[in-house]
Design a protein around this nucleic acid. Structure first.
Lengths: 330, 330
DNA sequence: TTGTAAGCGTTATCAA
DNA sequence: TTGATAACGCTTACAA
């Protein structure tokens, strides 16, 4: 392994041409006579020559790779965002660095350091501080994913306000009282907006909203734990509005595990519409956002040049209310 | 954004020293007088100078990054492997490329192309063909993660044979008959070994093993679907041994959703011991493998030089049977 | 202790 | 159509 790689110069020597010609042939640019091209191509083939990425990067002044930064990587949401992002990036010939900060103390530093190795960075909302984001944007093109645009930094996100519609549905169509919101508004812009929309929905329905959300993480296991706190108490809520499907599924599992009936004993809703949500019994009522598309649009924006005049600054993808059994429908 | 970056030469000029001195100061090598260091450091600080990764890579002849290749990224298993891997890599100053092949047709090509941009690649079992793996190893150091070592390519994996112990536990301690294995042995080396161990356990217990496994994917949603096929039939199995916790949790959710009791109506076991497994009702009996450690060990091996004499070729991490309620214990 | 200069492997501009 | 040759930004002998 690691057989010393051949360089342009060596290939040139073997093929009896100049390095310029080798370069032209290998990248298919410029004019080369058919015979020469043939000869060089053969040598390239025979020796399995691949131009060095390092040399190329330096000459072209571009890394040929982009990064996407997340708070964590667990769960189907992130996986799908990445799929959309990765697909577009590879399409454009750029490789992808994925960074999960996982609450690391040096996260902001790490992301800043990453700016020296890529042509652009997509940052998921709720991962690094605003100040860091600003400094980052001074170094490389940046796009915010699932967050607010900020001083020349464009954002791509989903329409979280639809949670208001969901909330009205629970309050008015089903007549539930005592709704609880599960999720940490300080954790990410998405959750902030969903919590706001939850309160907005209450206002529109003229029902007083709860003062505080139940602050937990975004994973299934967090939902299970929350279910314990919410459902073992004396006055469980009529409906639980979760910040995402993962936690909603956790709450659902917790509820079923306690022998409770959903939605008779408690209604549960989520956000995302991941695969599991249509498979569980009862099906999870949720808000569908185009997760893959979110990643894809972000990648395209990042790769098409962020500073461009006329570039989109605030792309909001539409969402859709999906009614299933867990809210009481059907 | 994208303010033209300063180069060593410019910093050198401003600080009134040579580029060599700037380099020495910025990387902290060689001898520099305190005053000079001070002065240069100040200029570096003031102008926010960061050495170009491209220039550095070319000069040092190393990319300063490694890659890890997975079939997919969904689920807590991958997330934790990555955390272990990423932590070690960052510790060593290398950034991490994560590649999810997601069943892409061009996956093998993509991985091969990646070899031009990194100093080493860790490949999870079941992602690319053996032939591709061999060609890859001819280009860069390679470590197989959760798979068999192959002609000079070292592997890091967990002891899957413990599934035999679990199987005996179900057959002999609990007296279940008609066990079913859920998972696709052709999908990954891990599952191959677990399926083999499942049959081995039957042999040791002198109970005939089922001829075929129920071939499904490794995600929770796959488990839910499998639950439908398995539990709606006329003769549901006494116990379902799943290839991993995710599918086991899916089966469990499917069973509970059908109003079945676990383990009374059907026992369920998994593999991994992810967070959810200890939280569900009943707790999931499973085999714990040190997932994070798996990623960390792989990274260390990759970064410490794979071809070295005396390098470990086959690291097998121990696993542990964890008995909870879903098998009938307690 | 500091500086000069030779790479590192490409791409791309001119000439020929 | 080809070939010299100058960048690209850094590290690192070797000299001073």
């Amino acid at each position: 392994m690691g057989n010393k790689r051949l360089t342009v110069r060596e290939i040139a020597e073997i093929a009896n041409v100049s390095i310029a010609t080798v370069s032209r042939v290998s990248r298919g640019t410029g004019q080369v006579s058919p015979e020469t091209r043939e000869r060089v191509l053969k040598v390239i083939e025979e020796h399995g020559y691949r131009p060095s990425q390092m040399g190329r990067a330096l000459a072209e002044q571009r890394h040929g790779s982009v990064a996407i930064v997340f708070p964590g990587l667990a769960g189907p949401y992130f996986s799908e965002v990445i799929q959309g992002f990765e697909f577009e990036a590879l399409e454009a010939g750029a490789s992808v660095h994925i960074v999960g900060t996982h609450g690391r103390a040096a996260a902001d530093e790490d992301v800043l350091a990453m700016s020296a190795r890529v042509d652009g960075i997509a940052v998921h909302g709720g991962t690094i501080q605003e100040e860091t984001l600003r400094r980052l944007a001074a170094e490389v093109p940046v796009v915010v994913l699932a967050g607010q645009p900020l001083e020349g930094i464009p954002a791509v996100r989903a329409d979280n306000s639809r949670v208001a519609e969901l909330t009205r549905h629970l309050l008015l169509d089903h007549g539930y009282r005592r709704l609880t919101f599960v999720g940490n508004p300080d954790g990410s812009p998405d959750v902030t907006e969903r919590w706001e929309a939850f309160k907005q929905g209450h206002r529109e329905a003229r029902v007083p909203a709860p003062k505080n959300p139940v602050r937990i993480g975004m994973q299934q296991s967090d939902g299970v734990i929350a279910a314990g706190e919410l459902l073992d108490g004396r006055r469980p809520p009529g409906a639980i509005v979760c910040a995402n499907d993962e936690t909603a599924l956790g709450v659902l599992i917790g509820a079923l595990g306690r022998g409770l009936r959903v939605p008779e004993d408690v209604a549960i809703t989520g956000f995302d519409d991941v695969a599991m949500s249509s498979l569980v019994q009862p099906g999870l009522t949720t808000i569908r956002q185009p997760i893959r598309e979110l990643g894809a649009v972000t990648a395209r924006l990042l790769l098409s040049g962020v500073g461009n005049p006329g570039a989109l600054m605030n792309t909001v993808l539409t969402t859709e209310l999906v009614l299933r059994g867990s809210c009481g429908c059907r």
